[in-house]
Write a protein that binds this DNA or RNA. Sequence first.
DNA 1: TATGAATGAGGATTCATTCAT
DNA 2: GATGAATGAATCCTCATTCAT
Lengths: 203, 203, 203, 203
Amino acid sequence: MAKRTGDKYQAIIDAAVRVIAKHGYHNAQVAKIAREANVADGTIYLYFRNKDDVLISVFREKMGEFIHATRARLDQVPTAEEKLRELIRMHLSQLAQNWDMAVVTQIELRQSNPVVRTEIRETLRQYYRLIEDVVRQGMAEGVFRRDVDVRTIRMMIFGTLDETATSWVMKKGKFDLLAQVDPIHRLLLSALRKSEQREEETA
Amino acid sequence: MAKRTGDKYQAIIDAAVRVIAKHGYHNAQVAKIAREANVADGTIYLYFRNKDDVLISVFREKMGEFIHATRARLDQVPTAEEKLRELIRMHLSQLAQNWDMAVVTQIELRQSNPVVRTEIRETLRQYYRLIEDVVRQGMAEGVFRRDVDVRTIRMMIFGTLDETATSWVMKKGKFDLLAQVDPIHRLLLSALRKSEQREEETA
Amino acid sequence: MAKRTGDKYQAIIDAAVRVIAKHGYHNAQVAKIAREANVADGTIYLYFRNKDDVLISVFREKMGEFIHATRARLDQVPTAEEKLRELIRMHLSQLAQNWDMAVVTQIELRQSNPVVRTEIRETLRQYYRLIEDVVRQGMAEGVFRRDVDVRTIRMMIFGTLDETATSWVMKKGKFDLLAQVDPIHRLLLSALRKSEQREEETA
Amino acid sequence: MAKRTGDKYQAIIDAAVRVIAKHGYHNAQVAKIAREANVADGTIYLYFRNKDDVLISVFREKMGEFIHATRARLDQVPTAEEKLRELIRMHLSQLAQNWDMAVVTQIELRQSNPVVRTEIRETLRQYYRLIEDVVRQGMAEGVFRRDVDVRTIRMMIFGTLDETATSWVMKKGKFDLLAQVDPIHRLLLSALRKSEQREEETA
DNA sequence: TATGAATGAGGATTCATTCAT
DNA sequence: GATGAATGAATCCTCATTCAT
């Protein structure tokens, strides 16, 4: 049971995203997802343990791609400041490019039950680590301040990006999400950069 | 129908908070809330249109108190920088002082259906405005930067506080939430201050 | 929950008997029972924990009446031999008088799942005890043989009655069940009597 | 289709017995039986019409062997009284020697649906005839009473043996089934013998 | 006002059977 | 013959809401 590969596996995941985005989490019945994926209801259970497993897999697969793409991009720029910019850009652009996924991750999947939510939070940890790695690099470079805990900084970075994305979805994409990259980058850089004064401050 | 006052009205709201905090959103049945409030199931429908109305009212009432208390406090300090500090402090301390409410607002109520979520978002707007007013005052004072849209800044402030609060609840209160006030204030101030002021900072 | 009294409780039990007798165990859906009892599906769950509980209760209630009536009758006759006769007569006549119950207890409920079957077996023990008490009395009277274990004798008595009843139902009541009382009584008496008495028997 | 011979035919039947004995009738899925028999799910349908056919065949084949062995044994003893003893002995010993089959025939297969049960009852008729033949022989010999219908006597004999076997399985084989042969034989003989013989018995 | 018994719509999941390979 | 991936029908139970008292 529960094969995690194959065309149908992907088809079901993609169908789930479309159905949830269109009808909402609470109206995404297994039958609807099956129909959208052009498979029988029972077929879903050849690839997934249960409905929760489908939802968790949606998040894991998509967030996995999201993180993978982001990490690959970050690897291409050397400095922490540039990495921060790419992080912001990738975060917002990937959501901007896939409205369905944006709706699903920012809104719908957050309504899910405790089991799904716990799994989601687990997946998010990888992303947290990615962010914290950038911050740590900046500190090591001597560019980012060291007087604030890395986790606090990560909360600011993630919180800012997440709130921005959620607002964008709640406003039905009525503002240009990518236009936020630059101002957010400027804000976060200002927050993170060491200043001459702060150096003295810690002395 | 649906009178919005009286002892029972309050009793039901408070019971809802306790039940949701204890059993989780998905296990907060009307019957359970009624029992906790020492009223009959049907009585709830004398004070609320339906279950959604109870949940929305929970958020509206509690968030109303939250905003009212915050606004009252902000009125007592003159400058934007100090107001920002009080905003952060009030936000985190009010959650820190009421674990049930923290669980309910940061975790459980976010699992609710679209109707409730929309209403919640509506209530949040007042809080958004409060934050933006502080930012605008800072700009007017010539202390906060003006090269970034007020809404973007608000997203950073709210996103940071919200993510911090959520992490705190997810980690079951294992870290000291109030200890975050100071570092967050420093981060946000650095993000918001005009360059010149940052230089003057230590003077 | 699960009130075990009231008109509806009885109505549901009786409806279950009729539905099972008519449609068979595997076609006795909760909805069908509810409709037959003139209540809503959900009402059943105000009186019973689940479907199994309905089935178990059917057996327990009906078998309870069965045992009670039998015991009451046995109390009215003094000797073990007469008691044995009444036991046989009551067993067969009660089934003969209630075709639906006969079908349900002899055929349909035996198809039930392990949970239900276990509960049924539990209830049957009381009946076993009733039979064994008659046998023991006969032994105490010096009328019944003592060279065979009471339980073995009980198995013969119950086995004979049960097989007779089952055959009668399987043959759709095509033979006169009550006509079996006398021959079975004679057979069992011959089996049980002490040798001396058997000698006198023919006199 | 549905050839009733070959290694796989037997393998499937034997696998069904093991699976039903181990997991119970309600957990004996076709897929599980196929796996136990080391064949593919679909292969079962090359040898059997459907699942019911498998179950019926299990009973028919095994009961067939049971009856055949019993008949062969009865042929080796001349008198009805001895035949009765061998019947009892064979009935109980064959079950005692094959726990899986005992569980399957006494408990699990009785939970099956009407189609299977009807077929089972059909197969049982052969066994009924075997029993009745012994009884008739005893009557012809002038040894068994003739004042009770042969079928009634058969119900007593079969009922007694069946109830004994079922009790033994329900009690998980906690008592010695073969130790019941002698007392049951004594009981049944007492029930069946004509009065004169019974008189001689004590001499 | 207050009660709480009654309602009934709605959905995830299993598993016997098929059929293209 | 043999496979096993795919099918899709069928059902118990929960719980928000009503309404007679």
